[in-house]
Structure formats: structure tokens, C-alpha cells
Amino acid sequence: MRKNRINSGEIVSPGTFEGMSQYRPPLCFELVGRTLELVMDTGYDYELTFCDRKALRYGEKGKEASEYAYDCLKADDDTYFVNFEVTGAKPRAGMSFVLDMEQSLVTANYCTVGQNPRWPRMCKPYITFGAIRREDGTLNELRHGYTDEMVGKAIHWQYGNLEVVHVYASERYYRLTQTREGMEKLKTEKPDVYERLSKRNVETIYEEPCHMIKIKDGIYVFEANEEMANRERGSGNDLFFLMNLNRMHDVGRSFGYNAEGLPENYTYGAFGEYYDASELLARESTEFIR
């Protein structure tokens, strides 16, 4: 058992996990053995086969499929989040699916990196929608859709070794801040991080483009590409969240590069609490003409 000593008491220490994946729930193996036909609005159909707990096969229907290592997480009893690195793809690519088995619908994010000559670590998400062919061969005509239901809300997300407040400022932009308590904690525990974050949202507002998609009541996709971070410090990832606001937690993935400059593509989970960010929401954007 891992233990260390802090002050006079003996404490249990957590394991070490990548990035903000400390609170990631256990992986889900429920789809193992199943093949899904994804009929996408791009005009292409794909087959997704969950071979075992670690590998899936994915490819255009009728063509040769490739095998990839994947993670599957659940956000709801019948809503799955599936993520894998498209190994060998040039430019580098990651694929994420929200598989809504209740409504037989799919939202996909094919995200690439390395195509922007000025900011080579800028990710480029490509979100598409479609339907999962039902066992009787029929397709749902409805689609998951862009929504403004999150606009004006803010949620404090606790990832374990990271906590942030996502402020859903508009249908196309979100802002990032910390809680007052979180900042106080950083001041004593991580003064260097405190120093950096205390400058945020003072003269300029930290704001990034995003997509908000409604999957079903209380279940939303939130995709945020850290474009401004890329421009300012040369790195920033594409973050793809599947939020269950009925149960106040989310699962998702970060695609891009880690602090050491190495490729990263990992899944995570967090616990949420609504937060009053009315002061930040009331301020005008300093980054985008709106």
C-alpha cells in the first residue's frame, strides 16, 4: 500500500495518473462483442466493432478496418464515450464518439493536429453527427443538436489534481476561471501556479471558442479547443467533454500535447458544482468582437 507522512499523521496516498485523469471512473466494457453501423451525415457509413476490452476495429463500411486501442466510459446508463488515437494517421488524429444507444444517435469528433503552419500544435476538431443503425435496420431521423441551454451557467469541475470553473459565456465561447477557495488553496500549496492564474481575467479575459451540443435532457457535449492558449504559449489541447448534469459529473478526453511536449490523448472524469460567475459573465470580451 502506498503511504507517506504529512505532518504527524500517516496518510494514504493516491496513485499517479496522466494529466487530469485522477478521478476518471472505471472503463466500461459493455460494448465488447458488438458491431455498430454509424450512418454519418457526411455521407459516409462506418463500422465500429468492439473486439475486446482493449481493442476496437473501425473503418468505412465495406472497406478494410483498422484496429485501435480504445477507452470507453459511461456518462449515463445508455450513453457511452469512446476515444482512441488513430495510430498512423498523418496528420496525427484522435477519434471520439458519443454513442447514444437510447436514441440510436452518434456525435463524433475527428480531431487532428499539426496542420497549422504558424501554430503547429494547434488542434483542429471536426464534429459530425449521425445515426446508429438499429437492429431492425431503421435509422433515427433526429440528431444531437447545438444548444444554448448552457449559456449563462458556470460549473466548478473537480478533477482531483486540477480544478477549474468553465463559464459558458455564449453558444460559441467559454471562459475559464478558478473559485475563490481554489485560489486561496493555490496561494499556499502552489504559489507559482497562483502567480500565473492570478493574472488571468484581470486586464484580459481568458476565453476560447467552443461547441455545446445537447445529447438529451441533462446530457451535453462541451468541446473546447485551446486556440488562445496555443497562440500565447505554443500549446493547448482539444478538450471533449460529455457532461451529465443530472448527476453532476463528466467524462471526456484531452487530445494534443502534454507539458513536456509529448503527444497526449487520455480520458478523464470530474465532479461538478454550479458556480456563480455572474461577475465574469457580465464583462465584455477582450478577445473576440461580438
Binding site: P25, C28, K74, A75, R247
Partner: peptide, 11 residues
């Protein structure tokens, strides 16, 4: 306060 809910498993 409503506690954090759990997802049932079919596994």
C-alpha cells in the same frame, strides 16, 4: 443537496 449519481452497469 442531491448527491453525485451513479451509472448502472450492464457488464
Amino acid at each position: 443537496k442531491k448527491p453525485y449519481g451513479m451509472t448502472q452497469t450492464h457488464e
